[in-house]
Design a protein around this nucleic acid. Structure first.
Lengths: 184, 184
DNA sequence: TCGGGATCATTCGGTACCGAACTATCGGAG
DNA sequence: CTCCGATAGTTCGGTACCGAATGATCCCGA
């Protein structure tokens, strides 16, 4: 296995860390695995926002909302927040932004006036229908160089991590309310 | 291979997407791989901030700065921004926060007064020395259930994605200035 | 030596994002 | 019917974060 300059630098860092910590046992395999997740995520997000989303004045989060509504249809705020994996308060602001852009519309539920549903407008529908293939192309570009099997393996390993991070292990009782997989 | 309810839901979503897009070819393997990166990253980050960092009033970004300074030592703002993988402007604010907390100190470079170096204070050094093992424990917890080989494979696959997202392929010339690997 | 381009960091405007406090509404117990 | 706990959404305070504009300093050529 050839060693790259990057590998060298990594090893330097590990040596430095060990030097600072003495003989404490450290888990460098986990360190690299976990920290690389964050690096990859920000890199992918930043470039997507610059090269795919910016021309439509969409943030990553805004795109996610459109995508969720497109796939699963109109839904209430709470469910939308869960699907988008974001706090309710955050979602309120983002939906307001999209509303201002004319891409989604809020509607109070008649039978329970606390609730609000969010739906795509025709303009929002047109945009996401047009944009999603381009976004998928971008995703494919980000995964270029990986085989089909590797992509699936990557997705699987990440699911394990997400599950590990999902809920405090000492959360009271087994949260059956835990929302399932595909939020995006 | 057993199918979980999650798998079912995922397949529903795929069917729905296909229904909306007609016969356009879509790359679902890339879709799942890429979108799971972002989900895992936010889940890991959120929980780390709540359960490991909050008690020390540190954000993920703030922790990263301390960590970088700890491992590689005092450095100038521009390099620190590169290592932390954040925009210079963002870094300025975060360093100011840490400075207010007494964890880092700025110092103008005598020989070139445009430049500023950032270094850990004794308090900052004490904090990161104390905190890093706990953080590494947390990382190990997030990677629980993965074998050593799987962790390394995860890190490797993510490096490919990060590299793909690294710089616009049509960037003018080959950016030799591209900053190398381990930023965290 | 003095002016102008390059190069640092910081500031600025705007969105996203979280958690906690708040508001409006619902639904049941008495 | 009326209060009161529960629930859904919004507001609020604060940080992070980006990209563009600004300001300070340096360096070099005339």
């Amino acid at each position: 296995m050839p060693t790259s300059p990057e590998d060298d630098r990594l090893l330097d860092a590990e040596r430095d860390i060990r030097a600072r910590l003495g003989d404490q046992p450290l888990d460098f395999d986990s360190l690299h695995a976990i920290s690389n997740i964050y690096r990859a995520a920000t890199a992918v997000r930043r470039r997507a926002e610059r090269e795919v989303l910016a021309e439509h004045s969409l943030s990553w989060g805004g795109f996610t909302i459109l995508w969720v509504l497109w796939v699963w249809g109109e839904m209430e705020t709470a469910r939308l927040a869960a699907e988008c994996d974001t706090a309710k308060g955050t979602l309120t602001g983002m939906v307001s932004t999209l509303e201002r852009q004319g891409l989604v519309a809020r509607e109070r539920v008649e039978s329970d006036r606390r609730r609000v549903t969010v739906a795509l407008t025709p303009a929002g529908l047109a945009l996401i229908t047009d944009l999603f293939p381009a976004f998928n192309d971008y995703e494919a570009e980000m995964a270029a160089g990986l085989t089909r099997a590797e992509k699936n393996e990557l997705a699987r390993l990440l699911r394990v991590v997400t599950r590990n991070a999902g809920e405090s292990p000492d959360a009271t009782a087994t949260t059956a309310a835990e929302s399932p997989e595909p939020r995006r």
